[in-house]
Amino acid sequence: MDPNHYRFRGVWRLAAPASAVYAALEDVQGYPRWWPEIREVRRTGADSGDVVVRALLPYRLVIGLTATRRDPAAGVLEVAMRGDLDGWSRFTVTADEQPGGAGGVRESSAAGGAGGAGGAGSRVLFEEDTRPGKPLLRRLALPLHPLFRANHAVMMCRGRRGLAAHLAERGDR
């Protein structure tokens, strides 16, 4: 196992139409309004920018993002990452017609399972394949690998909750 290689995968289920979820995720400039760990977004080009991220651990990351795929018909948003993290990240948004649907917000992992009640909504598959670009993070990877993974899990959980609240405030339920 390479302690400097991270693969993340998770599923968010949201009580909002796929088109509204896709639009919110496509608006990277708006992330700081609803995702607590995304502290700042700076546009650097038409399809690129830098995000400043700080989760529970006492360090911040500056990650350059460049859009590599934006496909509303398939519900796919993908970026290449460079800087303090190098790799790629992807959201795939689809309608969720699952029984027990997305009347509330549910989260499940690749291993499955989460609760919820009534109706249809959206399913968001998050995938990321990355390596730290920051030298300090590479040096600390072996002893702190589980802590880095837990930090990412907290960030993603708070992102899901923030997005659900943001969509509900806008009436996208």
Rank of each mutant, 00 (worst) to 15 (best):
Asn4Gly: 13
Met155Lys: 02
Val62Ser: 05
Ser109Arg: 13
Ala67His: 00
Arg7Trp: 03
Gly104Asn: 05
Val51Phe: 04
Leu85Lys: 00
Arg43Ile: 06
Asp129Ala: 14
Val11Tyr: 14
Ala95Leu: 02
Leu56Glu: 11
Leu142Arg: 15
Gly75Cys: 10
Val41Met: 07
Leu144Trp: 13
Leu137Met: 14
Met156Trp: 03
Glu26Leu: 12
Asp47His: 07
Tyr31Lys: 02
Val21Arg: 04
Asp27His: 05
Arg138Cys: 11
Gly45Ser: 08
Val53Phe: 07
Val79Asn: 02
Pro99Leu: 11
Arg60Lys: 10
Ala111Leu: 12
Leu57Met: 15
Ala16Cys: 10
Val62Trp: 01
Met1Ala: 14
Leu65Asn: 02
Ala110Asn: 08
Gln29Asn: 06
Leu57Cys: 13
Ala15Arg: 12
Leu61Asp: 00
Gly162Tyr: 07
Gly30Asn: 11
Glu128Phe: 02
Ala16Tyr: 04
Val76Ala: 09
Glu107Thr: 15
Asp129Ile: 01
Arg123Ile: 10
Ala168Glu: 15
Gly49Gln: 07
Val76His: 08
Gly133Lys: 04
Ala114Phe: 02
Ala20Glu: 13
Arg9Trp: 03
Pro3Trp: 13
Phe148Ile: 12
Met81Val: 02
Ser19Asn: 11
Gly30Ile: 00
Gly49Val: 04
Arg160Glu: 11
Arg13Gln: 14
Gly171Phe: 05
Leu85Ser: 03
Ser19Trp: 03
Phe8Lys: 06
Gly171Arg: 03
Arg82Ala: 15
Ala168Pro: 04
Thr66Tyr: 00
Ala168Gly: 10
Gly30Glu: 10
Asp84Ala: 04
Ala15His: 06
Val21Leu: 09
Val93Tyr: 02
Ala164Ser: 15
Ser122Met: 05
Glu37Met: 10
Val41Asn: 03
Gly45Pro: 06
Leu25Phe: 11
